[in-house]
Amino acid sequence: MIRRAVVLALVLAMGAIFATLLAGYAPDGDLNLTARYYADRTAPDIGSANIVTAIIVTYRGLDTLGEVTVLFLSATIVGLVLAGGRRRETAQRPPVPVGELLTTGSRFLVPLIMLLGVYVFVNGHLTPGGGFQGGAVVASGVLLMLLADPLKHFSHRLIAAVESVAGFAYVVIGVLGLVLAGGFLDNRILPLGELGALASAGAIPLIYSLVGLKVGAEFSSMLASLSETEEL
């Protein structure tokens, strides 16, 4: 078929470009200037043990604010696109039988999953993980709740409240950085503390917890919107 041949030619052409890139790739022997700056200055300036966290929350904090905004927009659009006709009563449908195992298991597991999520985002400046990962873990707890009780109407209002309060507090902390420290989202509004302690790195644990709550609420709202769509 001619269409498939065109596609194949396109893919092969891109493959040729990629092969050239790969053949010309030589790994760096040393860190480049930017990375070296981050490696040297993170401990004294930011006080965060995890350099990736320092980059995401402080050095490129404005990017992260934009990212969270994009995520909020896409969650909103998903809700908006799927909103038509969702309000019809889900309770009228005959209850879908959910296994006893899933119901009991979710009662036991959901608090643990939520706790793990909170642990992941509170320790974001010390260990791998942070707001985005922790938010995703929290959202998987919500997902388990959705699976165990599909008929329960999920509280969109609570999700929206958590989401907007966390987002607002995030921006307020950013502005506080502008007033009390060196710039927007500067983490030095709180004492830096000792490297490696839980209460260290200034405002990073606070900011990353807020990001975690916000991201968790956004993912939960996406999952709830998609799972509550009307049966055809």
């Binding site: 995890n50 990736v52 966290t53 992941v120 791998p128 993980g129 942070g130 985005f132 990962q133 995703a136 873990v137 959202a139 998987s140 997902l143 993912f219 999952l223």
Partner: peptide, 15 residues
């Protein structure tokens, strides 16, 4: 890259 690994496991393969 443990940070990226965690994100991919939780988001890419889970959600």
């Amino acid at each position: 890259s443990p940070d990226v690994a965690m994100t991919e496991a939780a988001i890419g393969s889970g959600l």
